[in-house]
């Protein structure tokens, strides 16, 4: 019994590590786009992964459905870009001449997380 509980606990820990860190990177990247609508609701950006071509521009429509203040801002780390999102509305953000790289976009507290892949 003791061994079983310990094993279960360790398995659970391994599962946490695998699911939240290891397997996350393997999620299939979407195809490149010039324009996308991202829904901001229930703590996640949908879709949470956006792919764009380097040197081109990308227009993102953020539709904020979550009224909690967590969702009020989207920040593109490393691109010096941020935007306030209004509840119940779509806020459009255009990123021009994107340099290649992988950028995270998050809310202020990084609870909402998304990835922008530029290649």
């Amino acid at each position: 019994m003791n061994i079983l509980v310990n094993l279960a606990g360790l398995m659970l820990m391994a599962l946490v590590v695998w699911w939240f860190w290891l397997s996350r990177r393997k999620t299939a990247a979407p195809s490149a786009t010039h324009e996308a609508t991202i829904i901001v609701e229930d703590g996640v950006y949908t879709p949470a992964s956006i792919r764009a071509n380097a040197g081109e521009s990308l227009t993102l429509h953020f539709e904020r459905r979550d009224p909690s203040p967590c969702a009020e801002q989207v920040i593109f780390q490393g691109l010096d870009t941020s935007e306030f999102l209004e509840t119940g509305k779509t806020t459009t953000l255009t990123l021009n001449n994107l340099p290649a790289g992988t950028y995270r976009f998050t809310c202020q507290m990084q609870m909402y997380q998304g990835t922008l892949i530029v290649d």
């Binding site: 939240f20 703590g43 996640v44 949908t46 949470a48 609870m111 997380q113």
Partner: peptide, 9 residues
């Protein structure tokens, strides 16, 4: 929803 996206908040 976060879990499905391999996220935790």
């Amino acid at each position: 929803k976060a879990f499905r996206n391999h996220n935790a908040n």
